[in-house]
Design a protein around this nucleic acid. Sequence first.
DNA 1: TCCTTATTGACCGTAACGGTTAATGCAAGT
DNA 2: ACTTGCATTAACCGTTACGGTCAATAAGGA
Lengths: 203, 203
Amino acid sequence: MNDKFFKLPLEKQRRIINAAYKVFSENSYKKAPMSEIADESGISKALLFHYFTNKKELYMYLWMNAIEMTRKAVTEYKTLETDDFFEMLKRSLLSKCSLMRDYPHLYAFSLRAYYETAPEIHKSIQENFNDVSKASEMIVFEKIEISNFRKDIELKTMYDEIFYAVDGYMLKKYRSNCIIPDEIEKEIIVLIDFWKKVYTQEV
Amino acid sequence: MNDKFFKLPLEKQRRIINAAYKVFSENSYKKAPMSEIADESGISKALLFHYFTNKKELYMYLWMNAIEMTRKAVTEYKTLETDDFFEMLKRSLLSKCSLMRDYPHLYAFSLRAYYETAPEIHKSIQENFNDVSKASEMIVFEKIEISNFRKDIELKTMYDEIFYAVDGYMLKKYRSNCIIPDEIEKEIIVLIDFWKKVYTQEV
DNA sequence: TCCTTATTGACCGTAACGGTTAATGCAAGT
DNA sequence: ACTTGCATTAACCGTTACGGTCAATAAGGA
């Protein structure tokens, strides 16, 4: 990894990183070509290899960057500083929307990276991830105030269901190539309001 | 397309088709290699090309087969012969589970094929699909009895949300390489019961 | 002008691709 | 045992794509 990369204008850094996120989110590690990343970011392949010594290094940088940016966004939105489940959910998802404005394909990349099977990558990733994800689920269930929920539903099922839906929703957006943060933000809010009504309001 | 393919033992046909569904569901059309399909199904690449004259033909056969099999399964489960939304949903999803027993990756293939961008493929697919999908959504909303639902929720949002969740659920199963029809069937039923309770029962 | 740095076109060796073909194996019929 | 006919494949072909390198060029500042 060449330090000169960080001395580039920020916008150019973003262009390169986003091209990489895009290509790696659309293909498996093995079938994601460096040349495609270079083309997509408007620089030559040689220059890309000038900044990142090889493919794996670029990939691992993206992975670390994704974790770090996500963590930062979650913190900025004070995601964990509430005991209202739906408020927390909203902050969590809106923080990801804000991230999406700078890095449209980071979310899709993260979703895919965790299941990457290429042996060179696999190990380094999974270790790193289990910490983050498992921990966050536990924190949620420790912190939230559950007395507001309908008494007749299984909270774990609700939790799973909501995250299935979020992933399914994002999947559709990515597949149809429709990453418009403003629109997604609105639709996400509609969904959250819907969930809140359904899961708390006792008609 | 060589007629001899259909004279093969059914199990061998399935092995080939499933290998193809798998490889095409994991990669974009362009990056899905025929050699990988051959290896996965335990036959030589030459033989694969003996049955299917070229890659596109194989892909289009898979697509047509997916549509036909899905239609058949939906019919067998009498999916549309009820006006209860959740019963219809259950039949629809269980029919897909049964399909999954014979063709584990057909679902993932269909999900991806619709958004395939390779120009040779794109056109032939989309035409064919709009009929099926749009029509089915309309049929559902015409047929179902809506008086049982909670009055305070937006049915379209509910409908979308459910299908996001199903896709997200299946995505996770595929990504983690966990296609176990029995298990999926059970979990799907849990989800449907959950939805039914939440969306109809006025606590 | 010169020097330094940013950037690239062209290149390398290798591997993978879609698709073909000539040669095998192999079973049934004589 | 020999032949016929089909199922199956190893080996091959021409082309493209890949990760990665390097010498050459462009750009910018002193």
